[in-house]
Design a protein around this nucleic acid. Structure first.
Lengths: 240, 240
DNA sequence: TTATGACCATTCGGACGATTCTGGTCATCA
DNA sequence: TGATGACCAGAATCGTCCGAATGGTCATAA
């Protein structure tokens, strides 16, 4: 049982433990002691990596957000359609859907977040990060990747509500009656003909650039705002 | 200040009072005494019309549901497009949106419903009533009023989630940045090209018939299930 | 006959203190 | 030098109590 765990590995282990416990028992019911035990370290060790319990949670959210973003990019790349408004939306939803913790954060699930919800002032920003901002829509309309006869503000409202509904959705109708893939297909088809683009557009390279841009901006904001301090600077993570 | 209030008028006054107080203070915080006072009757009088506080609330919900349904039909009729999937959806949403109480019921707002949420077992049925059921979608697909290449179960999930999101929506993005009309237009346009119908279809008469059918069925269910008993049988309300 | 409001049994909700638990620290140890 | 876990102050929780308020009834009055 001798684990030569490096510093970074230990930090990840702590985050893993926190993730599992919090998604299951909720933030309030999960004690720092629990996390330490699950991660196989002493309680004090946690405070060598994170300033406070809240800081630990912020770091966890940031990590999961990055994962979700990467996962959604991977899904988009794997789809022959490539980067379009509807694949962005579809796989953005799917990636989020697959990550219980982040979904809980996004829909402000009190059962998981507990009293932490009140401290989530920076969350509007966060929800933008997940690739739905006014900026995004206007850029895409300019490029002809979203039909231009839709009022951008209203469209933002509609799409945001749509995504929100999809993420809380199974509270109303159980998703179990279908599958993530089937629903994803419907979303794609509906949005493809619903908001465009109409024909093939060569501008999609530009769209991809803008998307990556917004994504990077979002993650940067999250990193700056999320963790207040950490003892070690994570060096790698080169890819975007 | 002498009001010759008839029996039915008095009942409506009680419901009006309940509606105003409950939407403002919530079900738990609103006492029967409050309702009586606001309606200008004695507390005992309320129990001549309704078996219990819960029964009064059921009746109120039923009344508001009827109003919302009628309002949505009126809006559809006023639109030159007439009966289509997207006008149904659009104005169904708008009518609901305009009725704070029913919206609270639909999204199960604890702040308004208080402990009553637990007694809302029959509400899945209710949510169907508001013109979104699997039946509805399949009929419309058969008639060519909804494109047939979308999996009906998944589409039901998507549309239900969509509507849900739109109704809770302003929690995420404030609706105040746009208007109900603008958002409504976007919804119409998006769904028109998103789920159809593609060309003009002559079957829309049939669609209207089915819709009225489902609507009537829903209201009947609500009436049967909602109020347990009431001292007076409301005679009028002939239109559907 | 019909509406009323005083009345009752029950529940609700705040106060209070005892007790446990939790986040965070720090002297100690490997 | 870095990890540990005993330790502390403050917060949350539980149990108990009691007065106020609430839903519902019914004898009385209009």
């Amino acid at each position: 049982m001798s684990e030569p765990a490096t510093n970074a590995e230990r930090e990840q282990a702590i985050l893993d433990a926190a993730s599992a416990l919090i998604t299951h028992y909720g933030y309030d019911k999960t004690t720092v002691e629990d996390i330490a035990q699950q991660a196989g370290v002493a309680k004090g060790t946690i405070y060598l990596h994170f300033r406070s319990k809240d800081d630990l949670f912020s770091a966890l959210i940031a990590r999961e957000a990055q994962r979700v973003a990467e996962r959604s990019f991977a899904l988009i790349d794997a789809d022959p359609e490539g980067v379009t408004v509807y694949t962005i939306f579809r796989y953005g939803w799917q990636a989020m859907q697959e990550n219980p913790l982040l979904r809980a954060v996004y829909v402000r699930d009190r059962r998981v977040l507990g009293d932490y919800v009140r401290r989530l002032a920076s969350l509007p920003q966060f929800s933008q990060m997940v690739s739905l901002s006014g900026e995004f829509i206007q850029h895409f309309q300019r490029l002809g990747l979203i039909r231009a006869d839709l009022d951008p503000d209203a469209l933002l409202y509609v799409l945001t509500s749509f995504r929100y509904g999809l993420l809380v959705g199974d509270a109303v109708v159980p998703l179990s009656r279908t599958s993530v893939e089937t629903v994803g297909e419907v979303i794609s088809k509906l949005l493809a003909s619903g908001i465009g683009p109409q024909g093939d557009s060569a501008k999609s390279e530009e769209g991809l650039r803008i998307l990556r841009d917004l994504y990077a901006k979002g993650l940067e904001f999250m990193r700056a705002n999320g963790r207040q301090a950490s003892k070690d600077s994570n060096p790698g993570s080169g890819t975007i």
